[in-house]
């Protein structure tokens, strides 16, 4: 085969692959949206779910999903970036570092149901908390942390060495260099990693089944006392998230409108992840502009 033909063939193959990927995505999205959008209404989003009757909404599940995501990120992001900084800047190359790195990789590839079982043991039984938001968030942290560590490490490593040397050569300490030169430069890629991780957390069901539970207590959204059992902000209450809700109405739902509820929930889930991504990217770009003074 002539190299020119081979080149054309390769171009064609890659274009075909791109088309396959895009059509899968478009197909999936339109399927979910076409089936789900018609069930989404203000009422659907703002009424609590029902166990038996038709017409229940997803108010609490939606809130729980965002709240667990928030708590998870509050725990996982500082730990993950800290771990990434350690791996990129402080860990000396050698056996110990290699072992740490393998541990992180193994942790990243654990099936989420296994993490759920581990969470059941650690954060539900041993601690004696029962099913809680905090337990769920900790399980999701275990599931999430390796990804954030890995992304942070890679992003920090990919900052040109020149910049680090420039800062150190001006008589600036290692830590201050990390804080003011390396992290800001690595920020866009760290943010992308965190958004990807957040999307996974938002849609995760298996790790939450046995940690945050399948039920939500009756919530009073006027109650902002985080220690009250009825408060949505209480992190020691069980919380069914949207993804878990989709699973549970489909497997054990008694309501007559299972299909409507699960299709509607699926659409809300997908739209939320999408909006969340766009928003995070937009904020990230603003921050990046501000620190780099680019217009």
């Amino acid at each position: 085969m002539k190299s020119k033909t081979a080149d054309r063939l390769a171009t064609g193959v890659f274009i075909a692959i791109a088309i396959i990927i895009i059509s899968i995505l478009v197909g999936l999205f339109s399927y979910i949206l076409v089936n789900g959008l018609k069930h989404i209404s203000w009422e659907f989003l703002t009424t609590p779910s029902s166990n038996i009757r038709a017409g229940g909404g997803i108010r609490d599940q939606l809130f729980n999903s965002f709240y667990i995501l928030l708590i998870t990120m509050i725990i996982a992001v500082p730990l993950g970036i800290g771990g990434g900084i350690y791996m990129a800047e402080y860990a000396k190359p050698g056996k110990v570092t290699d072992i740490i790195r393998s541990c992180i990789e193994v942790l990243a590839s654990l099936p989420s149901i296994v993490i759920g079982m581990f969470g059941l043991l650690m954060f539900v039984n041993i601690t004696g908390w029962g099913y809680t938001i905090l337990g769920g968030a900790l399980a999701l942290t275990v599931f999430n942390l390796p990804v954030i560590v890995r992304v942070s490490e890679d992003s920090i490593r990919s900052v040109p060495r020149d910049l680090k040397e420039a800062s150190l050569a001006l008589g600036i300490t290692h830590w201050h260099t990390i804080k003011t030169v390396l992290l800001p430069s690595a920020f866009p890629s760290i943010l992308t990693g965190i958004i990807l991780a957040a999307g996974r957390v938002f849609g995760e069901a298996a790790a939450l089944l046995f940690t945050a539970g399948l039920s939500t207590p009756r919530l009073d959204y006027g109650n902002w006392n985080p220690f009250s059992a009825q408060s949505p902000l209480n992190i020691f209450r069980p919380a069914e998230t949207l993804a878990v809700h989709i699973w549970s109405v489909n497997t054990q739902g008694l309501i007559p409108d299972v299909e409507e509820v699960s299709n509607g929930s699926a659409a809300v889930l997908v739209i939320s992840v999408l909006l969340f991504n766009l928003l995070a990217r937009w904020i990230g770009r603003l921050i990046h502009k501000k620190i780099t003074a680019t217009k």
Binding site: D162, L163, A169, L170, P184, S185
Partner: peptide
């Protein structure tokens, strides 16, 4: 020491600020 003995590198390396 590096405050008193400064250095300029081969490739211009301004901070992205």
């Amino acid at each position: 020491l590096r405050k008193e003995i400064g250095m300029v590198f081969q490739k211009p390396n301004p901070f992205p600020k």
